[in-house]
Design a protein around this nucleic acid. Structure first.
Length: 466
RNA sequence: GGCGACGUGGCCGAGUGGUUAGGCACAGCUCUGCAAAAGCUGCUACACCGGUUCGAUUCCGGUCGUCGCCUCCA
């Protein structure tokens, strides 16, 4: 039985999709104002794993992740950079998609952008106005928070407590400081669209209400996002969607923990960030992915070089294992069972990985004894696949020049990168045969310098790109 | 101030009312021309103080500390 921690209710609950065999899932995507950081990567990976697991379990998953492409920050940043908002949005969206793919994240089934759903949002706002839950005010439209019973149920907030809170700034056009904008009247030079309340643009929260309903229908099963979105963003989404329909908005709310750096949360606004593309460049997507999956998706994690190095060593261990022998037979049942048990427990990837490593140890021991480990390798590959961890070593791209140099140095025939590695490995074998250790070691060291690692084993020489 | 999460061995990080997490690092051994990989062995913890219990790291209360949200944020 799959159980998930539902922020709505703050308990672990058994998960049953509304429609049998089909899961409808919405993840709050990024505001594309600047380049993605590792925190975005964590969110993407966390829910990608959940999606993959649900699919592997045999469910149809409809996965939607939005792109917020209109917002104060985007407007301001575009102005700063002297580019149009459209150009900034296009550039940043591309960076997000590229980085996500670099982490092995599957593309969503749909990636709706806010600016392409203005009519849906206007319609939703109009419904809220007609129901008395929203009111126009000098070109803006606000949600009347106190008019909705149950506001605060997701975040555990009490409207009266909120009011006391010192930081709720009274908006000059609001009836109540708690009210939030559904529509913002246009200011000169800003992107805007016509509406019944005058030209303007949507508030931040309304897009998710409109687009999730459009692509998933209401209620849908899983609404996910970063824990920092619980309040006010998700609370307000609930207010809008449930206020407009009287029905339930989303059934299970899943939130990923924050990534910290130096003990503090990453944040775009303070510039306290780890650039995602840079991290992928430095460590590789699979290493970062493994780093993220070693902890529960709900816990905060600390980003550090040490942790990334650990993750790299762990990944190497997995890769060395599957390199030792081909998969064969059905996946080992014990491994799969343990994996399933772990994942059914609120997607406990840390424990799932522990199962994988146990299997790796067993498999290595079997191979050391000359026994078959095919099903263990099959199982490790299967589980790694569900977790989205790429166990294949990198190819030889970009190494032709370096290898050609080595081919010349050791007097073997040049050719394709693959061929040259093979010939160099053979040349080293020949040198070992004639007990010319210095030449053998030189070849091995030079290959290592180029990123090709050679390992001697009982059943021959293995090589791979580090 | 309000709401919430958390404090585990050298580091990261799961979990449990009594029994091995796992990874990384370190030491020794086996294997090996050397190395790497691998296996075996060792190092073995639950912030502090009370309480409940036959027994608590695991439940309850308190203390201290860290972090998040309450404003844009994955």
């Amino acid at each position: 039985m799959l159980t998930v921690y539902n922020t709505l209710g703050r308990t672990r609950q058994s998960f049953e999709p509304l429609e049998d065999g089909r899961v409808r899932m919405y993840v709050c995507g990024p505001t594309v104002q600047s380049a993605p950081h590792i925190g975005h990567g964590r969110c993407a990976v966390a829910f990608d794993v959940i999606r993959r697991y649900l699919m592997w379990r045999g469910w149809d998953v409809l996965f939607v992740q939005n792109i917020t492409d209109v917002d104060d920050k985007i407007i301001n940043r575009a102005a700063e950079l002297g580019v149009t908002t459209e150009a900034l949005v296009a550039e940043m969206t591309e960076q997000f998609l590229t980085s996500y793919r670099g982490l092995g994240v599957l593309d969503p089934d749909r990636t709706p952008a806010a600016t392409r759903h203005i009519p849906e949002m206007i319609e939703l706002i109009a419904r809220l106005v007609s129901r008395g839950l929203a009111y126009p005010s000098r070109g803006d439209v606000y949600f009347r928070v106190r008019a909705l019973e149950g506001y605060g149920k997701l975040s555990g907030r009490d409207v009266d407590e909120l009011r006391i809170g010192a930081r709720v700034e009274p908006g000059i056009d609001k009836e109540d400081p708690l009210d939030f904008a559904l529509w913002k009247g246009a200011k000169p030079g800003e992107p805007s669209w016509p509406s019944p309340w005058g030209d303007g643009r949507p508030g931040w929260h309304i897009e998710c209400s409109a687009m999730s309903a459009k692509y998933l229908g209401l209620p849908f099963d899983i609404h996910a996002g970063g824990a920092d979105l619980i309040f006010p963003h998700h609370e307000n989404e609930i207010a809008q969607s449930e206020g407009a329909t009287d029905g339930l908005f989303a059934r299970y709310w899943l939130h990923n923990g924050m990534v910290n750096l130096g003990g503090e949360k990453l944040s775009k606004s303070t510039g306290h960030i780890v650039d995602l593309a840079e991290a992928i460049e430095t460590y590789g997507g699979p290493v970062i992915r493994l780093f993220l999956l070693r902890a529960s998706y709900r816990s905060p994690i600390e980003y550090s070089e040490d942790s990334l190095h650990d993750a790299r060593a762990s990944l190497d261990r997995l890769r060395s294992f599957v390199r030792r022998a081909p998969s064969a037979g059905r996946p080992d049942v014990a491994t799969i069972d343990r994996f399933v048990t772990s994942m059914e427990d609120d997607f406990n990837t840390a424990e799932a990985l522990a199962a994988v490593f146990e299997t790796v140890r067993q498999g290595n021991a079997r191979l050391d004894r000359g026994e078959d480990a095919g099903p263990l390798i099959t199982a490790v590959r299967e589980v790694a696949g569900v977790l989205g961890i790429d166990l294949e070593s990198a190819g030889l791209g970009g190494l032709v020049d370096a290898l050609t140099g080595l081919a010349t140095r050791y007097e073997v025939e040049a050719g394709s990168a693959e061929d040259m590695v093979r010939r160099l490995v053979d040349a080293r074998a020949a040198a070992r045969e004639s007990r010319d250790w210095s030449r053998a070691d030189a070849i091995r060291d030079d290959l290592a310098g180029a990123g090709i690692v050679i390992e001697d084993s009982a059943d021959g020489v293995r090589w791979y790109r580090r």
